[in-house]
Design a binder for these strands. Structure first.
Lengths: 210, 210
DNA sequence: CCTGGCTGGATAGCGACAGTATCTAGTCTA
DNA sequence: TAGACTAGATACTGTCGCTATCCAGCCAGG
C-alpha cells in the first residue's frame, strides 16, 4: 500500500502521516526503492489507534511516543509495559505539590486501604495522587474523612472489570492496544456517564430551586 | 486590595490577572480612581478556583468563561446552572459521529437502564455519549454486551455520593464552586485511582509474563 | 513639591503544540 | 516520455495561554 492509500483508508492526511513517522509514532514503510515505500495493515491499525487516542482522549503526541516506545521494548514484562502506559497517559497536569510529606502519606494509606499492594513503590502516579489530595484538602471541597472509602471499592470494581476484558491470548502489541484504548476511551466513557449521572441527581435535588 | 497584592496572595502574575479580567473570567476591581481599583476576597477566591481548574483539570479558558457566565445568570435554577457547568466541562473532544442514529439509540437505552430520567432530552452530553459508544464499537475493544450494566450502578453511586456532599445552605456561587471543583478535581482523583487500580490488577495478572 | 514606583487599559509578542505546505530530486506507470 | 506520485527535509501556519511593553495618570515618601 502506498502512502496515499494509507491516507485515504484512515482519513489522515499524507502530511500528517509523514509528521507521525518523523515523530516516531509510526514506522517508515518498507522501502521498495529510493522514492517508494510500502505500508501494510499494521500501519492502518496503528494510525487508527493514534487518531482515536488524540481525538477522544486528547493524548499529546509526546505521550503517544512514550506509548510506542513502551510497546517496542521487548525485554519488559507485559505488566511493566502496562505500567509505562499508565505513566504516559497521566496527562501532566501541574499539581503544585502542596502538603509535602503529609499528603504523600495519605496517598500511601489510600493505596493500602484499597488493597492495591502491587503498585510500584516509585510509581509517579503516587505523587500525582498526593498532589490531588493536597488540592482537595485546601480547596474547601466538602469531603468527609471517609470519602475515599466510598470511592475505593467502586474504582476497584471498575478497574478489575476492565482488566478482565483484556484478551491475553493475543500478542504484546494487541494487548497494549487494548490496555491503552481501555484507559483512554473507557475513561472518557466513565467521565461522560458520571456527568450524566450528576445531571440526573442534581435535577432530583435542585430543579426549580433558584 | 490592589492588584499587586491580589497577585501576591494567589501566586498569579499581574499580567495574567489583567488577561483574565479582559476575558471576563474575573470582574474588574471596584474603581477608586482612574488608575486604581480595589480587589477583595471574592477576587482571591475566584482566582484560586480558576487556577485549580486550569492546573488540575486543564480546563480551557473559554470553558471557564462559560462557567462564569452560567453562574452570573440569576434567572436560571440551580439545576440549570449545574447543567451548563456539565456542558462547559466536557472538554470538546472531536468524537467523529460514527454510527449515527444507532449509537444515539444505544446511548438513550443506557440512560434508561441507569434510571437517569432527569437528563435533559437535548443535553449535548447525550451526543457525546453516542459518539464514544461509536468509537468503542468500532475500535475493536473487547466489550461484552453487558458492559454498561457493570458500570452504571458504580457510576451512579459515585455521582450520587458527590452530589450528596454539596452543601445547599450556601449561596449560588458557592454551590457552583463546589459542583465545578467536584467535577474537575474529583474527576481527576477518580481517574488517578483507576490508573493505580489498573496497575495493581495488571500486576496480579501479568507480572513476569513476557 | 517632586520623583519614582505602581496602576488600568491597550496592544504586541512569545513559546509550545500539532499539524500543513513547499521544495527537491527521484521514480512509476499509463 | 510526460504527468502524477513519493521520501525526506525544511519552513510555515494557526491556536492557546499567557507575557511584555507602552502610555498616561495617580499616589506616597522624602
Amino acid at each position: 500500500m502506498r502512502i496515499s492509500e494509507l491516507a485515504d483508508s484512515t482519513g489522515v492526511s499524507v502530511a500528517t502521516i509523514k509528521y507521525y513517522v518523523r515523530e516516531g509514532l509510526l514506522s517508515p514503510g518498507r522501502k521498495l526503492s529510493e522514492r517508494l515505500a510500502d505500508y501494510d495493515d499494521q500501519h492502518v491499525r496503528r494510525l487508527r489507534l493514534l487518531r482515536v487516542l488524540r481525538d477522544v482522549g486528547a493524548v499529546p503526541v509526546g505521550a503517544l511516543k512514550a506509548l510506542v516506545d513502551a510497546t517496542q521494548d521487548r525485554t519488559a514484562s507485559v505488566h511493566d509495559m502496562f505500567g509505562k502506559a499508565c505513566d504516559a497517559l497521566r496527562i501532566e497536569t501541574t499539581v503544585p505539590t502542596a502538603g509535602g510529606d503529609h499528603t504523600r502519606d495519605l496517598a500511601d494509606r489510600i493505596l493500602a486501604q484499597a488493597g492495591w499492594t502491587e503498585v510500584r513503590a516509585d510509581a509517579p502516579e503516587r505523587d500525582h495522587l498526593a498532589g490531588i489530595i493536597g488540592v482537595i484538602l485546601d480547596s474547601g471541597l466538602p469531603t468527609d474523612p471517609e470519602g475515599a472509602a466510598t470511592y475505593l471499592p467502586l474504582v476497584d470494581a471498575i478497574a478489575a472489570y476492565e482488566l478482565d476484558q483484556i484478551d491475553d491470548t493475543q500478542d504484546r502489541e494487541a494487548m497494549m492496544e487494548q490496555m491503552v484504548l481501555g484507559q483512554v476511551v473507557l475513561g472518557e466513557f466513565l467521565l461522560c456517564l458520571r456527568r450524566l449521572a450528576h445531571e440526573h441527581h442534581s435535577a432530583l435535588r435542585f430543579a426549580e430551586r433558584r
